[in-house]
Simulated assay, not measured.
Amino acid sequence: MFVSVGRSANVENIGLENTDIIVDKGVIQVAANFQTKESHMYAVGDCIGGMQLAHVAMEEGIIAAEDISGNPQPAINYNHVPRCTYTSPEIASVGITEEQAKEQGFEVKTGKFFFRGIGKALVYGESDGFIKVVADKKNQ
C-alpha cells in the first residue's frame, strides 16, 4: 500500500498579512511570471501550490528572475514536466493521463508494453512494471 498525505505551503506568520499578496486555499496567488499582487514581489515553488518538485521550483525561479531583469520568458507548460515517485518498482510519468486526454477532447489511442519483454530487465531481475503511452490518434 502506498499512502501520501501531501504537503502544505508555509505561508502563515511570515508577514504576508502586511502586504497585498493574496493567499487563497493555502497558497500564494501569482501571475504566469510568478509576480504576486505586490508588483515588486515574486513567489515560486511549494508556496504557490502546483507541482511540488525541486526541478519545477528551479525553473519557476529562473522565469521570475528573468522577468525581474526585464527579459520575460514563456510560461512553463506543466504537461511537459517529468514526475517520479521513488518506490519499487518506480512510478514515473510525463504529459497527461488517458482520462485527462479524453476530457480535453482528444481521440485517444493507448499502447502498453510490459518490462518482462525487455531482455535487460530480465537480466537485472527487474521485470515488474510497464510503459503506457497515451497518444492522439490524429497526430500519431
Rank of each mutant, 00 (worst) to 15 (best):
N33L: 11
G61A: 12
V56G: 02
G105W: 00
T36F: 07
E12C: 08
M58L: 13
I68N: 05
N33P: 08
A75I: 12
Q73C: 13
V5I: 14
K25S: 14
P89V: 10
G61N: 07
S8D: 09
P72G: 10
G15K: 06
Q35F: 05
D67E: 14
D46G: 10
T87K: 03
L53K: 03
T19P: 12
I22T: 13
G50D: 00
Q100L: 07
N13K: 13
Y86Q: 04
Q29G: 02
I68R: 01
L53G: 08
R7I: 14
G26H: 06
H40P: 06
A43S: 08
S4F: 12
Q104G: 04
E99I: 08
G95E: 01
V11E: 00
A57D: 03
A43M: 04
I48K: 02
G61F: 11
A65S: 12
M41K: 01
M58F: 09
A92W: 07
S4P: 05
A65I: 09
A54E: 03
G70D: 03
S39F: 04
E107I: 09
I96S: 01
V81K: 03
G45W: 02
V11T: 15
R7S: 15
S93V: 06
V23N: 00
R7E: 09
Q73V: 10
Q52N: 13
S93A: 15
G61T: 11
G26N: 04
G50Y: 02
S93L: 11
T19G: 12
G61S: 10
L53Q: 04
E59W: 10
Q73D: 07
I96V: 13
A32R: 11
N79P: 01
G45C: 03
V94W: 05
I22A: 09
G6S: 09
M41W: 01
D24V: 09
V94D: 03
S69M: 15
Q52A: 14
S4N: 10
T19C: 11
E103C: 11
R83Y: 06
E38V: 07
N79M: 02
A64H: 07
A31L: 11
A65W: 07
I14T: 04
T36R: 00
M41L: 15
M1H: 11
M58H: 13
G105L: 05
Q52M: 14
V5Q: 05
T110P: 09
A101G: 03
A101K: 01
T110G: 05
V11W: 04
I48P: 02
K25L: 08
Q29V: 14
G70A: 06
P72H: 06
E38D: 15
G111P: 06
T85R: 03
R7C: 13
N71S: 13
G49M: 05
I96E: 01
A9T: 03
S39K: 14
P89I: 10
A31K: 14
T36P: 10
E103I: 14
I48G: 00
A101N: 00
G95K: 01
M51R: 01
Y78K: 12
G26P: 11
V11I: 08
A57K: 03
P72S: 07
S8Q: 12
P89W: 06
V11N: 02
Q29Y: 05
G95N: 06
